[in-house]
Design a protein around this nucleic acid. Structure first.
Lengths: 163, 163
DNA sequence: GTGACTGCAAAGTCTTTGCACGCGG
DNA sequence: CCGCGTGCAAAGACTTTGCAGTCAC
């Protein structure tokens, strides 16, 4: 999509890259080709993903031995430390999503098709604030999953019931 | 059966056992000594636990070869199926809590000491109902974790900062 | 009796670690 | 050039599975 070709600032560097660079520098770490490529893939589109899916997308590099499975896991952990990704434990594995440059949100989780649907709720923030006060708890964030069946899967279930 | 011979009903069987029996019967399964002992341990007190902690409590039986690790995992899954336990994925492992005969609640999770503090919020139920409507989602439940530092760990952090 | 259940051992899944070479700053 | 970062292989943490003997019903 060739958008914004005239108006507004042209972003030469992506903000995630800048932030990651700052994080690495602060820790005496280095910006390697692998880290750069992982970051690029991760922020190429907004989506939930797990390590396996990321590895799939990076398969060409894997095949060329330019990148390895442990490096992907190591870098994912660094991206979480850097505040670029949020890590969520799901059944059996961890799922990641953008944390930087993307509004906070929570999820509806379809137990049938495993889809994650995002929603935002200011009420949850208020609730957290109230809980912080009541329990003298220092809140750093929250994870809310509403479990159930999405609209599409409900249709499927209805058909089954009728059959 | 010598029950209720004086005041009020005496509970000879625990409700969880009754429910588990019904579940087993319905599936053509059997109430074995192992299943009974696991259930008893699980419902002996209200607490969050993972498979390892349960295994610890059952160590004597393990040592006597009267019970094994796979059987504990198998039975935990059955207790979840039976609606007696709730299973929550945490980093790296699953944590269980009573689902039957105990009010619904959510958790504050201390990222320092891993403690889970329970709270109940009717607002969350209202939120779920609203989301169900908006997204035509059939809600079966939810998992809410408020992440942060508990009161005790905050004290520890303050001391560190001062040091 | 019969077939579900168990312990055992082994495998499966996801993730991390130890090590020697290689490359970034 | 120093030493962080990498690929590789292996191990680690947690959970499940295949199988032959055993026990609930």
């Amino acid at each position: 999509m060739a958008k914004s070709f005239s108006l507004g600032p042209v972003r030469v560097k992506s903000p995630p890259l800048e932030r990651f660079q700052a994080f690495l520098e602060q820790g005496g770490k280095r910006l390697t080709a692998q880290r750069r490529q992982i970051l690029e893939q991760v922020f190429s589109h907004h989506d939930h993903f797990d390590a396996e899916e990321l590895l799939d997308h990076l398969r060409p590099l894997l095949a060329q031995r330019k990148l390895s499975r442990p490096t992907v896991y190591r870098t994912l952990n660094e991206l979480v430390e850097a505040g670029l990704l949020r890590k969520m434990p799901l059944i059996g594995r961890s799922v990641y999503e953008h944390d930087y440059g993307y509004p906070r949100h929570d999820h509806l989780y379809c137990q049938n098709c495993n889809k994650l649907i995002e929603f935002h709720s200011p009420e949850l923030d208020r609730l957290c604030a109230a809980l912080a006060k009541e329990y003298r708890f220092q809140v750093t964030g929250h994870r809310m999953f509403v479990m159930g069946l999405c609209a599409e899967c409900r249709k499927g279930e209805e058909l089954k019931d009728e059959g």
